[in-house]
Design a protein around this nucleic acid. Sequence first.
DNA 1: GCCCAGGATCACC
DNA 2: GGTGATCCTGGG
Length: 290
Amino acid sequence: MDINVGNDSITFCGVNCFDLTKSCSCGQAFRWRPYADGMLGVVYGKPMYAAQFADKIIVRAASIAPSDAALCAHYFDLGRDYASIESQAASDPKLAVCFPAACGIRVFNQEPFEALISFIISQNNNIKRISGIIERLCALCGSPIDFLGETLYSFPTPQSIAALTIEQLTDIESGYRAPFIVSAAQRICDGYELDALRDFSLDDARKELLSFYGVGPKVADCVLLFSLGHTDAFPIDVWIDRAVRALYFDGGEAKKQELVQAASRLGEYSGILQQYIFQYARQVGKSGLA
DNA sequence: GCCCAGGATCACC
DNA sequence: GGTGATCCTGGG
């Protein structure tokens, strides 16, 4: 992969196994939206426009710092060998079914605090409404930044979320999750280091996250997979439940423990393969999995 | 107006 | 250690 850095853009050349739009829209990240020929989002507090032309990815920002190329490469997970993960998927008879829908998905490395709050909001919720709540949260207490004639907002700091009242959070329609959001932000303000969980074993890191009020197994695994580098974290929501039962249990009933075992057999990238399965499940719908 | 989808918690067994 | 009621909102 070649990288060219300019004053206001970075170009990554020779990127394979990456479908930018699909990866931004598959439900792993909630702040990207279509803009011109690409996607507009906010990465590590900085508004960015990303577009894809064959194997080139162009990222534009108001200004590019020396560290931004490495930051973007990390965010989009460009350093990982997805060709081998995709070939694992394509050659596994079960996963091969998912592959056409899923190829080109890369699992992003989001900011841990943003992921924690976002996936707390995601519980009992659908993607459209999750995005709406997060955008209103950012507009409420993030920092406004003008870019390409639009006003975007950074994801709020733990301090500014911890200072919100339950009423303010109810007003942006976060519902009964409001106290969970404040409690998590409060704990980060008190000095809890989410980043330390990168070096924990999967089980230990999960135990830590489960101790947050309002965080259960599914949200914990999302935070681990989408922000803390645990590529073997395997979030099980209703879609994954349906799809794994359809693919690995002939559509029959399976206990939660059996689903977890089926996932662990997929190996160290089971979480990335989970995104492939999720994308497939969403595409074929409930009736396609029966 | 009614019922359902979507996860975590808590009370209870 | 497992089961079921409950939380909130949008959509059929």
